[in-house]
Amino acid sequence: MNSQFKKGVLELCVLVLLEKQDLYGYELIKRITEKIEISEGSIYPILRRILKQGLCTSYLQESTEGPSRKYYQLTAEGKAHLHELKAEYRAFTYGVNALMEEEKEVE
């Protein structure tokens, strides 16, 4: 898919994954890149941005194997923002799908 397309929704993907549980950067990026083809590094600027905006917070946790991990946790503000984004995204994809269905019937 055109990369121009993806950037706007990556923020939504990050927030969706953080809704249920706190995740650390590597895990978060792995979950996203399993489904969506993007360069893995490009998630970090998004994470920093939502941290600065107060949509999430981060904390370090020691792990038994390997380095300490920086976990990201959604704030109340982040949850509210996520709900808005979700609603907007659903309305948008519904519209696009409806148009594609209509055009299919015409053919």
Binding site: G25, E40, P67
Partner: peptide
């Protein structure tokens, strides 16, 4: 620090440094 963590995690999963760099994308663009 974030990228060091990322490399460490990737290496413990058995990836090579070159593989991780390739997946991360260009440092200049980042």
């Amino acid at each position: 620090r974030d990228f060091q963590e990322y490399f460490d995690m990737g290496l413990t999963e058995g990836k090579t440094e070159e593989e991780i760099v390739a997946a991360l994308g260009s440092p200049q663009q980042l």
